[in-house]
Amino acid sequence: MFSRILTSALFAGAAAGLIAALLQFLFVQPVLLHAELYETGELVHFGAEAVSAQPDLPGMFADPMRDALTVVFAMLTYTGYAVVMVALMSVAEGMGHAITARAGLLWGLAGFITFHFAPGLSLAPEVPGVSYTDITARQIWWTATVAAAGIAMWLIAFGGNLMAYGAAALLLIAPHLIGAPEPESFAGPVPTELGALFAARAFGVGMAAWVLLGGFAGHFWQTEGKRANAHA
């Protein structure tokens, strides 16, 4: 059972992570590199001269080591997500729910909401150069919000009664009423246009990668199960 979880999760995580990295290079990285020009002071927002919104960026793969590390860590991160998700899929299957590639798409959406959208609703994906407060406080809030959203997703999917739905709604809303740690003042040097674009792109790429991750996980969970049965 353990090896079936790990094998399916590794396949799904590696595939989805690779796609996430490629989507990141296409859509997120140009905004990130653009923002870094403001972060380092190379470009100045509201300077004496008007600044072009389309500066020359270092270009794709200008720093191969940096980009290679991005691929490695995207694959690692999505494999981590996949191990958690496939483990929960195995529990759901034990409860009698079918785990297929198609059902996996919904699992992926739930995972996106849990790990990206729920914390990101108050701690928006950060463009480089934004002002921020203490990292530890934000990580604690992030972790608690992800935990609450994860339980909420499970209750919505498998709770099946009004109490469960109510508890799920409460778990989803509460972290944002309590509030994420925010800086004392906003002094980020990056234009708001770039910050908004960055957050939108990060959410879009995250959703695409997660839905694929769920589909892949459901698919590989099935094929690995068939393989295990064939050997047994």
Partner: peptide
């Protein structure tokens, strides 16, 4: 870069 793109603080 991955942390920024996946919304980690």
């Amino acid at each position: 870069d991955v942390r920024h793109a996946t919304g980690f603080p």
